[in-house]
């Protein structure tokens, strides 16, 4: 309990640090963020007025506090491109990215857990080599290239699945029906490659470690069947594997930008890409802020759940 409380308290300065970095992004670039909204031939007094309107006339720490206060209430300003509140653009995109990440994490966990346990149980055999090899491919394959290869195979050559979008006729509305799920299959496979690799390796390492512990021969010598020993081993390996899975989910939220770009999947990655090319700083800042805070929260939850599942973990 004490650890959980300390862990929560520790997440607060980290989250604040994250907001500082996200806020500073705007000032890192060589380009004045105002050029996107100021006409080239603007009079000096007009520029002053625009500066005032956006709050750029105040000292930077004050600007940060004002930005943070608004951000905490979900106000990340207005998109320079569409003139809509940033949050109204981020939330629907986040929902679509989350859907992709959740399905992919679920798939990756189910596949990788089986592969990892089997590889560990058959340590050193051809089966181990094949599954470990699969894991290496998973972490080595650039997922944007895998996306293109999947499109070439399943859309160009076989014509089984759609190449881009998330619904017929480019509709942005999602339904859980067969028509829409066809659009989900390829992006999900592409983003699960890395998690499959990492979770397989983690599971294998964890189960191998468990198998080397004294309780395994002890259980066997008590005459317990191999299947029930497996249950013990899996239960002991579960907290670490679940933690790795949780972290992977977080990485997918922020890391699917490349896959989303290939599949024109209207999620946060696609939004980020657009905002960078249109120099739409409020959208860039708002999207990164929301995703990064989510990542901090996911890490926090993973730690808490892991402590709760595995009371042996005592952390300093």
């Amino acid at each position: 309990m004490d650890y959980i409380l300390r862990r929560i308290l520790y997440a607060i300065p980290i989250a604040l640090g994250v907001t500082v970095i996200v806020f500073s992004l705007v000032y890192m670039g060589p380009v004045d963020p105002l050029t996107a909204v100021t006409p080239d031939d603007a009079e000096p007094h007009v520029i002053e007025m625009i500066k005032k309107q956006y709050g750029f006339d105040k000292p930077i720490p004050v600007q940060y506090l004002i930005w943070l206060k608004r951000a905490l209430m979900g106000d990340f300003g207005v998109s320079l491109q569409s003139n809509r509140p940033v949050i109204e653009e981020v939330i629907p995109a986040l929902r679509k990215t989350m859907m992709l990440a959740m399905v992919a994490t679920g798939l990756a966990f189910s596949v990788a857990f089986v592969l990892g346990v089997l590889a560990a149980y058959h340590n050193g055999t051809w089966m181990d080599r094949i599954f470990t090899g699969t894991a290496v491919i998973g972490v080595s394959v650039p997922n944007y290239w895998l996306s293109i290869v999947l499109v070439v195979i399943f859309a160009v050559e076989l014509n089984w699945l759609p190449a881009v979008g998330m619904g017929p006729r480019g509709s942005g509305e999602w339904e859980w029906d067969l028509v829409h799920i066809r659009y989900l299959i390829l992006p999900v496979i592409a983003v699960s490659a890395i998690p499959v690799g990492i979770i397989t390796r983690t599971t294998r390492a964890c189960v191998l470690e468990m198998l080397s512990q004294e309780f395994v021969p002890a259980l066997h010598s008590k005459g317990i069947t191999s299947v029930r020993v497996l249950v013990h081993v899996v239960r002991n390996a579960a907290p670490t594997v679940l933690a790795a899975t949780g972290i992977q989910f977080g990485h997918l939220l922020g890391g699917s930008i490349l896959v989303e770009t290939v599949f024109v999947w209207p999620g946060t990655g696609y939004l980020l890409n657009e905002s960078i090319f249109r120099r739409d700083f409020p959208v860039l800042q708002g999207t990164i802020a929301v995703l990064a805070i989510f990542f901090v929260l996911i890490n926090l939850i993973v730690d808490i759940v892991q402590t709760w599942l595995d009371p042996r973990i005592k952390r300093g």
Binding site: G17, V20, I257, L284
Partner: peptide
Amino acid sequence: DVFYAFPTVLLAIGLTGALG
């Protein structure tokens, strides 16, 4: 730790987006 608190690819994209 603060830099570590970002998903890797997201931070890389945010930085290139900001730096140009």
